[in-house]
Design a protein around this nucleic acid. Structure first.
Length: 290
DNA sequence: TTGAAGAGGGCGCTTACGTCA
DNA sequence: GTTGACGTAAGCGCCCTCTTC
């Protein structure tokens, strides 16, 4: 289904109420409308006050939905509509996520059987689980709804189920699976970013190790120290990130600073903050200052 | 005010089915 | 026609939050 795949790329930054490993977790792509408004309360409140969102979507899609859905169950829809949301014996609870509550009634079981496209009653045994395939239009509408809000309250669920000619349970399952797919996609993206970050850090570590080796070589060869041009990696000013003039390691420290902040450029000498244990292994510099 | 019980919803994991190469 | 990979609808158990008593 192309719509879903495309939308996966657009909805990668959705936040979930649960299972957020880190509040500052990576959020890379946020072009989805749901990304800008990922939190449930505002959406639910908006829906509770009026069914504007659903009505808008419904108005655009209801017309062409009629008669196109191979799985459509008008009788089921009417039954759902008649079920009161607040009633403890309502269909909402009977089709909600819990297994004990999902035990289908006789009529609901018949609906589920009827939803099994192309499966005859003879083939559909009591223990077999026949899956229906949502139509492209149904998936598209669900995607549109998901873009607006990635969770549904019972009212929304019923409205969407009615609109699509599906059972509320089917809408609920679809949203659950859709959230799972979005999270999986986001996890993959985060993993890629972390991998690149790790590679960068590895490269940085390699560079610093090399720098340490160079400094150690300088330490072990003081007779060459004064004649040597400092390694280019050692002449970067840590404060202004300008490369010092390599004419002299000593001069490099003060050449381009009007205030003569020699301590900022003492790195080539193995002194100062960069030359201390702050960023370079201490054992490499023990005795170097003394 | 506090705590137990139940309902409802979400998520992770898994299974089973449909589709396609 | 068969098969394996893949996508996805759906089942199940657990956890959390909220409400009620």
């Amino acid at each position: 289904m192309m719509v879903q795949k495309e939308d996966l790329g657009l909805s990668l930054s959705l936040n979930f109420r649960h299972n957020i490993p880190n509040p500052q977790h990576l959020t890379l792509i946020s072009s989805s409308p749901s990304a800008s408004n990922p939190f449930k309360p505002s959406w639910n409140d908006a829906f509770a006050s009026s069914d504007r969102n659903s009505d808008t979507c419904r108005g655009e899609t209801r017309s062409f939905l009629r008669g196109i859905d191979v799985n459509r169950l008008p009788s089921a829809v009417d039954m759902e509509e008649e079920a009161g949301v607040s009633s403890p014996n309502s269909t909402v609870s009977s089709v909600s996520g819990k297994r004990s509550e999902r035990e289908p009634t006789g009529e609901e079981h018949d609906m589920n059987r009827a939803c099994s496209r192309g499966v005859s009653d003879e083939e559909d045994g009591e223990t077999s689980r026949k899956k229906l395939r949502l139509s492209k239009d149904q998936s598209a509408i669900l995607e549109e709804s998901f873009k607006e809000h990635n969770t549904l309250n019972p009212k929304q669920k019923l409205a969407l189920a009615k609109q699509l000619g599906l059972l509320p349970r089917q809408v609920e399952v679809w949203f659950q699976n859709r959230r799972a797919r979005t999270k999986l996609k986001q996890t993959e993206v985060d993993c890629e970013v972390l991998k690149r970050c790790c590679e960068n850090l590895t490269e940085e570590n390699r560079r610093l190790q090399k720098e340490v080796q160079e400094l150690r070589a300088l330490k072990l060869s003081p007779q060459f120290y004064m004649q040597m041009t400092p390694p280019t990696t050692l002449t970067m000013c840590p404060s202004c990130e300008r490369v010092a003039v390599p004419s002299s390691a000593v001069d490099a420290g003060t050449r381009h600073h009007p205030m003569g902040q020699a301590q900022s450029h003492s790195r080539a000498l193995g002194m100062g903050p960069w030359g201390s244990a702050a960023s370079i292994p201490q054992r490499g510099f023990d005795g170097f200052h003394h």
